[in-house]
Simulated scan of single mutants.
Amino acid sequence: MENVLRPLIVIGGSVVLTLLIGWVTDLLLRKADARHDDTTLWGLLRRGRVPYQLLLCAAFLRGSYDQAQLLEEHRIGIGQTLTLVLIGATAWLMIRVAAAIVESSYARYARASRDAARVRRVRTQVTLITRVVAAIVGVVAVAAMLLTFPAMRAAGASLLASAGVLGIVAGVAAQSTLANLFAGLQIAFGDMVRIGDTVVVDGEWGTIEEITLTFLTVRTWDERRITMPVSYFTSKPFENWSRGTPQMTGIVYFQVDHSAPVDAMR
């Protein structure tokens, strides 16, 4: 009887405690969001409740699993799985928290600023910063997961010894990808083009809809999407009609006959 009750108490207690703490935390965030109308931070933090609860549940189970005495022959494998889930949930939560902080800061800046061009510039930088943070956290999380395996820890010394050679080979193999990566950072912080800018590229007129670390999406006037590598905008000329201000001076041609009302047209 004890062999059945102990696992149920440990596992059930971990799940119930996770749900209780998650509910209390979400309640506090909702109250904070209703109390502070000047910021969206607390509302955005609620997006992380799923990884937050997953992190709590994995932590509780990982800490109390040894006492459950359940499936002793698979104890090491289950413990390893819980550790991987714990690392993944932590990375997921960190990405959500970082995105909430960055987005709330941008929303506050957008409300306070009256310069539309500067707001578009900050929006572009915020988008790329969020993607960079997510990529860094993801790489660190995957590395931490791999290091939990004894075979990977044993191979660590040889991997470090060959890191220079592997770095050179990877750099040559991924030359175009690295070029696009650095071009994306150059576009974001060099203020060459921003989300919402009106541009003409390869004879196509459109609006910058999305900028990532490797590609850029232009939405044309007829609702087509043109995906281009960001390195294009650092290596070839293009027209940016809203680089400074949206006002423009241009020439307009009317094909009319001699009976056209010129005064009314003016």
Rank of each mutant, 00 (worst) to 15 (best):
L185C: 11
A179E: 07
E209V: 07
G203L: 08
W205K: 13
V199Q: 11
A179V: 00
G184Y: 00
I195M: 02
V199I: 15
M192A: 14
V193H: 06
L178V: 15
A183H: 03
G184N: 11
A183E: 09
A179R: 09
N180P: 09
E209Y: 08
M192S: 14
F182Q: 03
N180A: 04
E204Q: 10
R194S: 01
Q186L: 14
F189T: 13
E210W: 12
D197G: 07
G203I: 05
G184K: 07
E210T: 15
V201F: 09
V200Q: 08
T207Q: 04
I187R: 11
A188D: 00
G190T: 14
E209T: 10
T198A: 11
W205M: 08
D202W: 03
L185G: 05
T177G: 12
T177C: 01
Q186T: 00
G190Q: 14
V200C: 09
W205H: 05
L181Y: 02
G203K: 04
T177W: 02
V193E: 10
V201E: 07
L181N: 04
A188S: 00
V199F: 07
E204L: 06
E209L: 11
I187L: 15
I187T: 13
I208L: 12
G184V: 07
E209N: 12
E209K: 12
R194D: 08
I195E: 01
I208R: 08
T177V: 01
G184D: 03
E210A: 13
N180R: 00
L178E: 00
M192Q: 10
D197T: 06
N180F: 06
N180Y: 06
M192D: 15
V200N: 10
G196C: 03
D191I: 14
L178N: 04
G184H: 02
A188G: 06
I208N: 00
G196K: 12
L178S: 11
W205P: 03
L178Y: 01
I208Y: 11
D202G: 15
W205F: 11
N180C: 07
N180L: 08
A183P: 03
V193A: 02
R194P: 12
N180D: 05
E204M: 12
T177M: 10
L178Q: 09
V200G: 09
E210P: 06
G190Y: 15
L181D: 05
G184S: 03
V199W: 11
L185D: 01
L185H: 07
V201Q: 08
E209Q: 14
D202Y: 04
A183K: 02
L181H: 02
